[in-house]
């Protein structure tokens, strides 16, 4: 039975998906439009889009880079894609020259330039926020790309992974406390549970010390700025820090008093944690996050070394 099912699934994978088109799609903007045929030439302006395409085994024509670098957690899969610059201002001439069928971007950065982008081809723009939105976006974009079944499978696998890990973590009755922080020099943004990275970690049964924000309108506003004293007052068991510039963060005497630092449980985590709505990123966050927060229960996952979490270091 299992063999037959896999065979059928396999057959499905090799069937051309052209029958799905023309397709009526809508994204996070107003209204909907029709995609006539399966998009072959796709530009991925956001990491989410690049992530999903790599997961589907497709290659985007072009991507945007952060400080000239491609997301390390995707390995070398998109090294051949053209560099369009930063997502806040992707190079329009290069994009136009590629003659894309479809461009996928982030609503907040690329939305204002909708007119210019739709002049080149179809445009899909997404808000990214929490886990549920990630599932929706994956399904939506996957369908638009003509891979509805695969993305459905991706979502199902993701749900299964979450449940599996959560069950295992909770079964052992541990509930470590943590803070997930995006550090900007002197300022610390502590993510609340509305934001996906924190949501994934809290799902495992870990306690986010800044909790969930019930009052905020947009998920991207669900953070607290902590000053050093608040950090000490909260004193999490685990400290996960995303240092946007990479490398050491600014030293502060407070750190040496934190339990997390004293016990070697303060980590500097990779770029995939900042916005893990793509299938590869979200799986990595669960797997590595679980390993970091429950080291006795979960092994370190397979992933590019450069994207792995490291011990947090400070610049003296």
């Amino acid at each position: 039975m299992k063999f037959l099912r896999s065979a059928m699934l396999g057959a499905l994978l090799f069937t051309p998906h052209a029958y799905a088109f023309p397709l009526e799609v809508s994204d996070d903007r107003d209204g909907s439009f029709t995609i006539e045929k399966q998009p072959e030439r796709v530009i991925a302006l956001s990491n989410f889009a690049a992530d999903l395409m790599v997961a589907l085994g497709k290659e985007p024509l072009a991507v945007t880079t952060y400080e000239g670098k491609r997301p390390v957690y995707l390995g070398g899969s998109i090294d051949k894609a053209l560099d369009l610059g930063d997502i806040t201002a992707p190079n329009l001439e290069l994009m136009a020259k590629l003659k894309p069928d479809l461009t996928v971007g982030l609503l907040r950065y690329n939305g204002p330039f909708e007119k210019q982008i739709t002049a080149m081809g179809h445009f899909l723009a997404y808000h990214t926020a929490d886990v549920e939105k990630s599932r929706q976006n994956v399904a939506n974009l996957g369908t638009a790309l003509g891979h509805a079944e695969e993305t459905e499978a991706l979502n199902r696998n993701f749900d299964r992974l979450r449940a599996e890990y959560a069950a295992k973590a909770k079964a052992h009755g541990k509930a470590p406390s943590y803070l997930f922080i995006w550090s900007f020099h002197d300022t610390f943004y502590a993510f609340q549970d509305n934001l996906m990275s924190a949501e994934l970690l809290s799902d495992l049964g870990a306690r986010n010390l800044v909790g969930h924000n019930d009052k905020v309108r947009l998920a991207e506003e669900a953070f607290k700025i902590l000053d050093p004293e608040q950090l000490l007052a909260l004193n999490p068991d685990y400290l996960l820090v995303f240092a946007s510039h990479g490398g050491p963060i600014k030293a502060n005497p407070i750190y040496q008093r934190l339990d997390a630092v004293k016990n070697g449980r303060a980590y500097s985590v990779g770029y995939q944690y900042s916005q893990p709505s793509g299938p590869i990123a979200r799986e990595l966050v669960i797997r590595e996050g679980a390993h970091l927060l429950f080291p006795d229960l979960f092994k370190a996952p397979e992933m590019p070394d450069a994207a792995r979490a490291k011990q947090l270091v400070f610049a003296e």
């Binding site: 903007r29 107003d30 209204g31 204002p112 909708e114 007119k115 739709t118 309108r217 947009l218």
Partner: peptide
């Protein structure tokens, strides 16, 4: 509005 969309205009 969050759950709705933004209609095109540069810089909103």
């Amino acid at each position: 509005p969050t759950d709705q969309t933004v209609s095109a205009s540069t810089d909103y």
